[in-house]
Amino acid sequence: MKTLSFTLEHGKLLRLEGAQAWEVRCQEGALMLSGPWPLGDVELHPGQSCTLPTAGLVLAEAWGASRLSLAPPADQPLRRSFAAAHVFQCS
């Protein structure tokens, strides 16, 4: 499976939109995922992952220097899926 990798400094945000069913995996550091879902915020540590249940806006915030990967659903090629998911790193 193809993935996208991002490195975030402490307190930086990664904005994800249109990424329903994408997997977010914490490689290093820690992440807090916030989105419009009833389960509340999700905290990820190295080796942990979360499949995004919504196409709405999701923010991934780095706690300490962090590295994460994003993978589209298995039935979607990375290029096509990435066009549907808007990823922005916020200051």
Rank of each mutant, 00 (worst) to 15 (best):
M1A: 06
T3Y: 02
L4D: 03
L4W: 06
L4Q: 06
L4H: 01
F6A: 02
L8R: 01
L8A: 04
L8S: 02
E9F: 03
E9R: 12
E9W: 08
H10N: 14
G11T: 07
L13C: 08
L13S: 09
L14K: 03
R15V: 13
L16E: 00
L16W: 01
L16K: 03
E17Y: 05
E17R: 07
E17V: 03
G18E: 00
A19Q: 04
Q20N: 03
Q20T: 06
Q20V: 00
A21W: 11
A21K: 14
W22R: 01
W22A: 00
E23H: 07
E23C: 11
V24R: 05
R25E: 13
R25Q: 09
R25S: 07
C26D: 10
C26E: 04
C26K: 08
C26L: 10
C26V: 10
C26H: 05
Q27R: 15
Q27M: 14
E28V: 09
E28T: 12
E28W: 10
A30R: 13
L31G: 02
L31Y: 00
L31I: 02
L31C: 10
L33Y: 01
S34C: 02
S34M: 02
G35N: 01
G35L: 01
P36Q: 02
P36Y: 01
P38S: 07
L39T: 15
L39G: 13
G40E: 08
D41H: 08
D41W: 00
D41L: 02
V42M: 09
V42H: 07
V42N: 07
V42T: 13
V42A: 05
V42Q: 12
V42F: 05
E43S: 13
E43I: 11
L44S: 11
H45N: 09
P46D: 10
G47T: 09
G47K: 08
G47Y: 08
Q48P: 13
Q48D: 14
S49F: 14
C50P: 11
T51Q: 15
L52A: 09
P53A: 11
P53Y: 12
T54S: 14
A55N: 15
A55C: 10
A55G: 15
G56E: 12
G56F: 12
G56W: 10
V58G: 12
L59G: 09
L59E: 14
L59C: 12
A60N: 13
A60M: 06
A60S: 11
E61I: 13
A62P: 13
W63V: 12
W63Y: 15
G64I: 06
A65I: 09
S66E: 10
S66Y: 12
R67A: 08
L68M: 12
L68E: 11
L68V: 11
S69E: 15
L70Q: 02
L70S: 04
A71N: 03
A71P: 04
P73Q: 00
P73A: 01
A74R: 02
A74F: 02
D75L: 04
D75C: 00
D75Q: 07
D75G: 01
D75I: 02
Q76E: 04
P77F: 01
P77K: 05
P77L: 00
L78Q: 00
R79S: 07
R80E: 08
R80K: 05
R80W: 08
R80S: 10
S81C: 07
S81K: 02
F82D: 07
F82R: 10
A83W: 08
A84M: 04
H86T: 13
H86I: 03
V87F: 09
V87M: 02
F88M: 11
F88K: 10
F88R: 11
F88D: 09
Q89I: 15
